[in-house]
Simulated assay, not measured.
Amino acid sequence: MKKEKLNDSLQNFRNAFDRLKEATEIEKDRPLVAEGTIQRFEYVVELLWKTLNRGLKYEGVKIKPDTPRETMKEGFKANFLHNKVTWQELLDKRNESSHEYLHEEFIDDYYDEIISLTPHIEEVLVLLENRFK
């Protein structure tokens, strides 16, 4: 893994996270606000696991199979992640969103969970930035 690719991934993760955080600060009074926030969250989850994956590989960790769940498992072993319940919930919610996305009740509940998960995501982002920049 080249450092340049890892830095690009970190920058993309930072940009997407900042846009997510921006979305969570908008009043959820219109359907598009919640739906847009959910979409931004999905991007951030993808970038989180891919950036974590690249960081682990940069440090020589082999991840087989190369999936989000295996990456998260290795992230725990390397002490990049803490609180397994939170990260399991994050992956489960990301998977649920593709099946239940249009149900209004799901959107409201999911939006609230995104708000609660955002600080945990930021914690990992900062850890990765400090470690690899």
Rank of each mutant, 00 (worst) to 15 (best):
P65G: 09
W87G: 00
V45W: 00
K64F: 05
E46H: 10
I107S: 09
L102H: 13
N53D: 14
E46G: 13
L91V: 13
D66M: 12
E59C: 11
T86Q: 12
V45L: 02
T51R: 04
K84I: 02
L90K: 00
N79V: 11
L56R: 02
L91N: 05
L48P: 04
N83P: 04
D108K: 13
T51G: 04
F76Y: 10
E104R: 14
L90E: 06
K50N: 14
K57Y: 09
S98G: 01
K84T: 06
V45M: 05
G75F: 03
R94H: 14
T71S: 08
E104W: 07
L52F: 08
K93C: 04
W49R: 03
N79M: 11
Y110E: 05
Y101L: 08
G75P: 09
T67W: 04
R69W: 11
D92W: 00
K84H: 08
D66T: 10
S98Y: 08
V45G: 03
F80S: 06
F80A: 08
L52N: 08
L91Q: 05
V85W: 12
Y111K: 06
Q88C: 04
Y101S: 02
P68W: 03
F76C: 11
Y101A: 07
H103C: 00
I107E: 02
W49N: 04
H103S: 08
Y110I: 00
T67C: 11
P65M: 11
K73C: 00
S98W: 01
H99G: 04
E100P: 00
E105R: 13
D108C: 03
Q88K: 15
K93R: 07
M72E: 07
N53E: 12
K93Q: 04
E74L: 07
R69Y: 06
N83Y: 09
D109Y: 10
E113I: 12
E74A: 14
E46I: 02
Q88M: 04
P65Y: 11
P68M: 10
K50W: 03
T86A: 13
Q88S: 14
L90W: 01
H103K: 13
F106M: 03
E96G: 07
D66K: 08
E89I: 06
E89L: 13
Y58I: 02
Y101T: 11
E89S: 13
W49P: 05
T67R: 09
F80Y: 15
K57P: 01
D108G: 01
T86C: 05
F76S: 08
T71I: 14
I63F: 11
H103A: 04
D92I: 03
R69A: 13
I115L: 15
Q88R: 12
T51D: 04
M72I: 14
L102Y: 05
R69I: 10
E74I: 00
L91H: 02
E46Y: 05
Y111A: 10
L90Y: 00
L81E: 07
Y110W: 07
W87C: 02
Y110F: 15
T71P: 11
P65K: 12
N83E: 06
P65A: 08
Y101R: 04
G75E: 06
L47D: 06
K64W: 01
H82W: 12
T86D: 06
T67V: 13
H82P: 00
T67L: 13
R94F: 14
K50A: 06
E46F: 09
E70Y: 07
R94A: 12
I107R: 10
L90P: 02
V85R: 14
